[in-house]
Nucleic acid binder design. Structure first.
Lengths: 1322, 350
DNA sequence: CCATTCTCTACCGACAATATCACTAGGTAATGC
DNA sequence: ATGTTACCTAGTGATATAAGTAATAGAGAATGC
């Protein structure tokens, strides 16, 4: 079963849990095996952490934010039982900080409160933060009362005081000054930075609540609910072309009033000698930039633009919702003015108006909920709600809620009060429409999650805005020349607990339900009796379920009368899903980097606290700096939109026709009437066919619909970013591969996306640049199997076409570019080449922005060959110099062809043998003769390619057969009924061929698979864990505890996340939602761990290679990458090639598999494996004695002490009680390992089991031979006696220390040969 | 025939764990007579016999009914020898290894003329066509459901009329399809059964352990249990299960006979039943929303007496009232079919 | 403990099933002393 | 004030859902006699 995973839950809460876990782990028997390897061990957090805790935490923060100290206090008290001491301290400190800030004059109360807390909670231990807060509290009392400070100082003691004062982040300067002054401390005793600080008299680094100038103020919000109000319509007038793209608006519309920005733009215009325009719509920064010739001026331009863009980025990230709401309102007002006639009707020409109406309809419901929340929020517990409030809520004539409804609402009440209510309908609508524009079916759970998550984001944004506003104004007052990202980076991170999934889903469902129950449209239908048209209004959406196979999913359906009006136009795009306008926040720790206002983890985890915990530890050990640096190189690469391509693709898009891989426009719901509906009493098969046909049409349509929506998104973003300088913030998947955070528009996307992107920075082509551009073009055409000279000559012979295509790509005669493998990128390259050739100063001086790619040829196999030192394999994947690139696919094809040829000969022989009897020969034999002949003529590179490629990912026979059958289905003349058998036949041969060709790679794969299996099947002796097993009703299972974990060469810990997750239901108003429970014990999914380890390990290597190369390119050349495709300017390709080869050599200079084995041995040193050894060997004898003791100890009183084979959980239990019966494992530890391995390898099966096997085959296959009575009865009688021979155990099961068998021997290939291998990457 | 049956008893696989196979020819005869099939002998009905396995029950049926054509459809190779043996020299008894799971197998029977029966109006039960199948296997329940759907549409064999359908099935399946409104196992499929078929329970056998479990469950349940009214024609006490059935598995032998109840607005019926039974324990005032945009506000006023009733408790007649109202609703969804999406296969991107 | 039956089938990015019920543990209210 | 019991609740695990499996194969895990 699959369920919702809450990614965000893990980010902060879980990591904190794990930290705590680690701390306690270190001191107990759970200390990590080796300091340098390791890291916390995965262990189910059993007692300390539960869901309740999460909710309590988040509630605490919410209550504090609402100044609800009473409830906060009761929450802290509740926390005591469910959390550990350090968290408790954190909670109390949060309380204190907030209380002191809010009530600077109630100083005595603060002291009293803390005393009380100390009394009530013995587990609470104040820390330095607490002390610092109390100091601050005491200082605030100063002019009035000195006693508090005196007391505080005396209890604190001098050493502690100095320690506190020396930590700048603990106290504001003012307090430090007061304390120093009052305690008459010698300033010399403090650390130098603090001394300086005191002398400089710098203002305190503390958040001050200064309103951001851009914030929509309350007056405006009040006005918004009034549609007639128009006073702000002028000031908020959006730019003329609203329809262009909403982001354009969000980007530019909101900044009109800012004088600073105008000032900056003025400067930019001056620098680039461009006429100034107040309207940002008209500004194309890229064109301005290109005009500048003087490098100094360019630098200055870049600096000013960066400064301007930092502000714009911040506005963009923080103002998304306000912008959308303003626009709807504006449109609505304008339309009301313009067409009075159709006032109440849906205005098809403006969805904005409709949205505004829905907004207004929903707002009263929101208000009502908020009223309820306000009534409920003050009470610390549900049971303490005063009867008067309860009466009000349950009043039949008032709110009319049931008791359980009140309880349900009480759960999330405080959270509803944290954000601007006006934003709630807006974000609900946005999410619904956004999803509607992505997916064909709107799954209600996705919607609830996204809406709830957005409420949380809205809240956090508000929190962060407050603190940033403080910094910004502070910096501004200092008249800083530019607001360097570095300055913001030093901000203390605002700690906040992530909302728990229950809260998120319940708030999400509440809003969603309010929305769909209020949003209405006009509908028309036909009365089935009268046949007349009936008009009415109806909900625009409704909630229902649908079956997917046999399982049901909750969905939101559109009213069919909506006619797709919400699709396409005027979407709002989440700003944190866009490329960034300024340099991304650099990665400095595992959870700081990327967008400015989002807490992004460096690793994309699917709510796997284990992964986070390992990353966190590695990060705190400064083990990840190389990773950060590499990633920051990718982040700092600036891009812009390729205007030529954007214009072209827009043109194609607007034609709504299919063009290459751009699908034509489709309706969301296709017309099914063209499929004839069979008669009601038709054959069931016919009915099935009809339904299948309908389904195919619907799904095909849905896929086109999604594609079209996706491209629409891309183009929308590209249009908005035209002329902008932007960046792609990246993070990593769990194996370390880098991905841009912007999911829609990025350079990892398809051909269209890639063709829309060019480097912002331009570089002169120089002497080799044109050559590389040509090569690039050839590669994009798929001409990459021939040597360089041939590729270049391919372009040279087609140079006329290149130029024609570049000049008029849509001309029917110039369709050459469409034949390329990647047509749009190819066209972009054609245009670039033409421009270069036309450059008046010569092509060497042409400034090129195009990214030239260098791709590894079968990168996975390259790494395998380097790992195994495989001479032959290395040659096949171009690790060695050759005149011509080796093509793996062609090589495999050759071998397959040979095999097929052999089979044909064999078949001919067979045919002769069976001459005459052929007709009676079995189907099987016929196929043996027929298939090779059938397949032989159609064998092409294309047929084997996918299978060879995916072989690295562990494709199995079934998958390979599927792939090949797809290829065969593409062949028009291939007999359809033979596709299946032919593809099975070919799949077998292809897989065998690859295995033969890359024997060494497969040895490594097999070794890795074996290692994963051993790790996952290993057991851990752990009391807590085994108790957890026992408590469950299910069968005790002691293995499947540890995942496969390793460290990549850059120091990134990699945890394979595949576990069997348990789910938990969250009841919401609409339906139940099932979420993965990260707090339950999740046994590892051994199969997945095993099959995925080889590809993941190799990917972790190629990721390392990429990041190493990126680091080496920093400050020298521009670098971008798509996993194993490295990009740079044409002029720098030589440099890139040199660098990437050097790094490859560096990476493989050690035998990484050996290193991996050592790491495994260390990491799993305290694991034990379950093995079988012959029952009669000396070791077994010794162990049996211990087992016997254990059996005697645990037996029921009545039963006899008789030796039997212990189960795995009993073996573990035995070790737990080893002080009573002695440890069996210790006996094994003293036993010779090599001999032990031999014992394990010894076949435990003797002749007896072979007999059994033959019996089995008989039962299955030769049953038909039972035709005579005796044999029949005979076999009946004996069936019960089959186990006679097995009544004596021939082997016993024991625990042995964890071990890794030796690794395959590394071959003799010298990796340094890649240094002069031209086609390694090409 | 009986002698031959003794022979064919040999042809069952001893290593199976699942399934139910009758080995007692006499019990077979008893079943036939309890069902009154001995009165049909004069019609010499055509018998379509799916998954006869080693054929003991088929033989007994054959002897009782004296069919003009008795078609054994058994795809499993392991039974072929035995069945060949059973049918040899008897032109009225035929054996095919075509899979009754495959609808085309039946088409073939019709096309080749093995299955030639008149269409009998639904006012009477079809006297000369009987379908029997042993569905105690992994896809048995699916087939039972399909047969009920065919009865609903009057397709497949049911285009010939109200064909007696005698099915060996898992007792759980039996409970599910036979559950009355308000009973524990009431489900979508029991609504459909209620609409289209009458039934007789011939045998309802559960092992003592299963029985105990079922009893405990029934006692604890808030709902009534179907076992209360499902009294088998042949009580357990009359059968020696250990002797007569080689694999000790639970089963029920149920006869279904299509009802003379034609449902006009079939699509609407299926749609309404499916969508309401998705959450059968919520009252109609909640569940109506699932039928379409505005269904609740538009349809509720027309069903005031049902609005607080749950679909779980609704009889066929009550469901039909909703179906009628829904059919006449001007704003009902135009497309009454839902399409599930398959997890999309990763396509090679080149 | 071994034989039968079930499950799954290419890595990552990625994106997902729900309703309902019986049972249990743990707490609260009620009641009796 | 404290013990006991009935009652209530939330949480958990189990089970059913729909209703073609269009074909095939082989390994490994789970199940159960």
């Amino acid at each position: 079963m699959v369920a919702r995973r809450f990614r965000y839950l893990a980010a902060s809460n879980a990591a904190r849990i794990w930290q705590g876990r680690l701390a306690s782990t270190m001191t107990s028997s759970y200390r990590a095996p080796m300091a340098n390897v390791s890291t916390p061990r995965y262990k189910a957090p059993i007692h300390l952490f539960d869901n309740n805790r999460n909710h309590t935490w988040t509630l605490l923060e919410a209550c504090l934010d609402l100044n609800n100290f009473k409830r906060a206090e009761s929450l802290i008290l509740a926390l005591e039982n469910i959390t550990q001491s350090s968290d408790l301290t954190m909670a109390v400190n949060m309380y204190l900080r907030k209380f002191i800030d809010t009530n600077p004059d109630r100083n005595q109360d603060v002291v009293d409160w803390l005393q009380l807390i100390k009394l009530k909670m013995p587990n609470f231990e104040p820390n330095e933060v607490t002390d610092a807060l109390m100091l601050r509290n005491a200082c605030l009392a100063l002019p009035r009362s000195h006693s508090l400070l005196t007391k505080a100082l005396s209890t604190l003691g001098k050493p502690k005081l100095i320690s506190i004062l020396n930590q700048r982040e603990l106290l504001d300067v003012e307090t430090v000054k007061q304390v120093v002054e009052y305690s008459q401390l010698d300033i010399q005793e403090l650390s130098t930075p603090i001394q300086q600080l005191l002398q400089d008299d710098m203002s305190p680094l503390e958040s001050t609540e200064i309103e951001d100038t851009n914030t929509v103020n309350d007056d405006e919000i009040v006005n918004i609910s009034d549609p007639i109000a128009k006073n702000d319509a002028d000031t908020l007038t959006p730019t003329s072309s609203i329809g262009l793209a909403s982001i354009r608006y969000a980007l530019k519309g909101l900044e009109l009033n800012d004088n600073n920005e105008d000032h900056d733009i003025l400067k930019l215009c001056a620098l680039s000698n461009t006429p100034y325009s107040h309207n940002l719509e008209d500004i194309n920064f890229f064109e301005m930039y290109q005009k500048i010739e003087n490098p100094e001026d360019r630098k200055q331009f870049d600096a000013i633009l960066e400064k301007l863009n930092i502000r714009r980025q911040q506005t963009l990230e923080t103002k998304g919702l306000e912008a959308a709401r303003m626009r709807w309102k504006y449109t609505f007002q304008r339309l009301v003015k313009l067409d009075q006639k159709s006032d109440a009707n849906i205005s098809l020409h403006s969805t904005d108006k409709l949205k505004w109406e829905w907004f207004q309809a929903m707002m009263p419901l929101v208000r009502k909920e908020i009223e309820i929340a306000k009534l409920l929020a003050p009470f610390p517990e549900f049971n303490k709600i005063s009867t008067s409030v309860l009466d009000v809520l349950t009043d039949k004539n008032g709110y009319n809620l049931t008791r359980s409804e009140v309880k349900y609402k009480f759960f999330y009440a405080p959270f509803l009060l944290l954000v601007n209510p006006e934003n709630l309908p807006a974000l609900t609508m946005n999410e619904l429409i956004r999803l509607h524009n992505q997916e064909f079916t709107l799954k209600s759970t996705i919607l609830m999650e996204r809406i709830g998550k957005n409420v949380e984001k809205e809240y956090q944004l508000g929190q962060q805005k407050k603190s940033i506003a403080g910094i910004k104004t502070e910096e501004a007052s200092k008249d800083a020349v530019d607001l360097n990202p570095k300055d913001i980076e030093t901000l203390p991170a605002i700690p906040h607990a992530k909302w728990d999934p229950e809260t998120i889903l319940r708030i999400g469902s509440l809003l969603l339900k309010m929305f769909i129950s209020s949003a209405r449209i006009r509908v028309s239908g036909k009365d089935p009796i009268t046949g007349l048209e009936v008009k009415s209004t109806a909900p625009a959406f409704y909630h229902t379920y649908k079956y997917q196979m046999s399982t049901k999913i909750g969905i939101i359906k559109c009213n069919p009368n909506m006619n797709d009006i919400l699709i396409g136009e005027n979407q709002t795009i989440n700003p944190q899903q866009l490329p960034m306008l300024c340099k991304p926040k650099p990665w400095t720790s595992w959870n700081s980097g990327g967008y400015w206002y989002a807490n992004t983890s460096i690793i994309r985890t699917n709510n796997c606290p284990e992964q986070e915990a390992y990353i966190d530890v590695a990060s705190s050990r400064n083990q990840l700096n190389a990773v950060y640096e590499g990633l920051n190189v990718l982040n700092d690469t600036s891009w812009t939109v390729n205007k030529n391509m954007l214009q072209l693709i827009s043109k194609i898009w607007n034609s709504k026709e299919t063009f290459i891989d751009i699908p034509a426009h489709v309706e969301a719901m296709p017309d099914l009437s063209s499929i004839p509906k069979p008669a009601r009493d038709c054959d069931p098969a016919a009915l099935r066919d009809y339904r299948r046909k309908c389904r195919e049409v619907v799904l095909k349509n849905g896929s086109l619909y999604s594609q079209r929506c996706d491209l629409n998104y891309k183009l929308d973003i590209a249009r908005a970013l035209l002329g902008e300088k932007f960046y792609m913030p990246h993070n990593l998947d769990f194996r370390g591969r880098a991905y841009p955070l912007s999911p829609h528009f990025n350079h990892l996307g398809n051909d269209v996306s890639r063709s829309l992107l060019i480097f912002w920075e331009g570089k002169k082509l120089g002497p080799n640049g044109l050559w590389w551009l040509k090569l690039h073009l050839a590669n994009l055409f798929g001409v990459n199997k021939s040597n360089y000279a041939e590729r270049i000559s391919f372009v040279d012979t087609n140079i006329e076409k290149v130029i024609q295509c570049a000049e008029d790509p849509l001309n029917k005669n110039n369709s050459w570019w469409k034949t390329a493998d990647a047509p749009f990128q190819a066209l972009a390259a054609c245009i670039e080449i033409r421009e270069a050739l036309n450059c008046p100063q010569g092509h060497e001086n042409y400034i090129s922005h195009l990214a030239v790619h260098q791709d590894g040829s079968c990168n996975g196999l390259q790494h395998y060959a380097a790992l195994g030192g495989d001479v032959e394999g290395a040659r096949e994947v171009n690790l060695e110099r050759a005149d011509k690139p080796q093509d793996v696919y062609s090589r495999v094809l050759e071998i397959v062809k040979q095999k097929v040829a052999k089979d044909i000969i064999k078949g001919q022989a067979l045919e002769k043998e069976l001459e005459g009897k052929l007709t009676s020969a079995s189907q099987n034999i016929k196929a043996q003769i027929e298939i090779p002949n059938l397949v032989s003529p159609i064998l092409t590179r294309k047929i084997v390619k996918q299978t060879v490629m995916t072989n690295v990912y562990g494709v199995t026979f079934v998958g390979a057969r599927e792939q090949i059958s797809n290829r065969l289905a593409d062949l028009p003349d291939f007999p359809k009924n033979k596709i299946f058998s032919s593809s099975a036949y070919l799949a077998k041969h292809v897989l065998n061929s690859v295995r033969e060709l890359f024997e060494s790679a497969h040895e490594i794969q097999d070794w890795l698979g074996m290692a994963a299996k051993r790790i996952c099947n290993a057991v851990v002796i752990d009391k807590e864990l085994s108790e957890n097993y026992k408590s469950k009703k299910s069968k005790p299972k002691v293995s499947s505890v540890s995942a496969v974990i390793w460290t990549n060469p850059l120091g990134l810990p990699i945890v394979q996340p595949y576990r069997e997750s348990k789910t938990r239901a969250v009841t919401t108003e609409m339906q139940n939602v099932y979420i993965v429970d990260p707090y339950s014990f999740q046994p590892v999914n051994t199969r997945k761990q095993r099959t995925a380890l080889p590809p993941n390990y190799v990917h972790s290597l190629d990721a390392s290679h990429m990041l190493m190369t990126a680091r080496a390119c920093a400050n020298r050349i521009t670098f971008a990458s798509v996993h194993d495709s490295y990009w740079t300017h044409a002029s720098d390709v030589d440099c890139l090639n040199k660098t990437l080869r050097e790094k490859f050599v560096e990476l493989h200079s050690t035998y990484l598999i050996e290193q991996l084995r050592n790491e495994f041995l260390q990491r799993y040193a305290d694991h034990l494996e379950i093995v079988r050894i012959p029952a009669d060997c000396d070791l077994a004898m010794e162990i049996k004695e211990v087992h016997l003791k254990y059996i005697a100890l645990t037996k029921e009183k009545s039963s006899k002490t008789k030796l039997r084979i212990l189960t795995a959980s009993e073996l573990v239990d035995l070790e737990l009680r080893k002080d009573k019966v002695g440890s069996a494992v210790d006996i094994v530890r003293n036993y010779d390992r090599a001999k032990l391995e031999q014992l394990c390898a010894e076949p435990t099966k003797s002749s007896g089991s072979q007999k059994q096997k033959s019996l089995k085959t008989k039962s299955e296959e030769e049953f038909n031979d039972f035709t005579n009575e005796e044999e029949f009865s005979d076999s009946l009688d004996h069936s019960a006696n089959a186990s006679v021979s097995s009544s004596k155990a021939r082997s016993i099961q024991i625990l042995v220390p964890f071990y890794m068998p030796p690794i395959p021997k590394r071959g003799s290939f010298d990796v340094r040969k890649v240094l002069d291998s031209p086609y390694f990457f090409s | 025939m009986q002698n031959r049956t003794l022979e064919c008893r040999k042809f069952f696989p001893r290593f199976r764990k699942t399934g139910v196979t009758l080995l007692n020819y006499d019990l077979g005869k008893k079943i036939s007579s309890k069902l009154g099939y001995d009165k049909l002998t004069s019609f010499h009905p055509t018998v379509v016999d799916a998954y006869p396995e080693c054929g003991v029950f088929s033989a007994s049926l054959n002897s009782t009914l004296q069919p003009k054509k008795h078609i054994l459809m058994e795809p499993l190779k392991m039974y072929s020898k035995g069945l060949q043996f059973l049918v040899q020299d008897n032109p009225k008894l035929m054996y095919t290894s075509n899979d009754p799971y495959d609808w085309t197998s039946f088409k073939e029977l019709e096309e080749k003329g093995y299955l030639k029966e008149p269409v009998v109006p639904y006012s009477d039960v079809h006297p000369s066509l009987i379908y029997t199948a042993n569905l105690v296997h992994t896809h048995g329940e699916q087939l039972v459901a399909q047969y009920l759907n065919c009865m609903l549409r009057r397709s497949w064999l049911f285009k010939y009329g109200r064909v007696r359908t005698l099915l060996w099935m898992n007792p759980k399946t039996a409970l599910k399809i036979l559950a009355s409104p308000g009973y524990q196992n009431r489900a979508r499929i029991s609504c459909i059964r209620e609409a289209v078929a009458d039934y007789r329970v011939v045998i309802f056998h559960e092992s003592p352990e299963s029985q105990a479990k079922a009893k405990a469950k029934a006692a604890a349940s808030r709902f009534q249990n179907e076992r209360e009214y499902l009294t088998p024609l042949i009580p357990d006490s009359e059968i020696d299960f250990e002797k007569d059935f080689p694999y000790q598995n639970d089963f029920a032998l149920i006869e279904l006979i299509p009802r003379d109840n034609y449902i006009e607005n079939l699509d609407e019926f299926e749609y309404v039943v499916t969508h309401l039974m998705m959450r059968m324990k919520v009252p109609l005032r909640v569940g109506l929303e699932y039928l379409g945009a505005g269904a609740l506000e538009d349809l509720a006023p027309k069903l005031p007496h049902l609005i607080n009733k749950t679909p779980f408790n609704m009889s066929h007649d009550e469901i039909m009232q909703i179906v009628e109202v829904f059919t006449l609703w001007p704003f009902k969804p135009k497309l009454l079919l839902d399409f599930y999406e398959e997890s999309l296969l990763a396509l090679g991107n080149n």
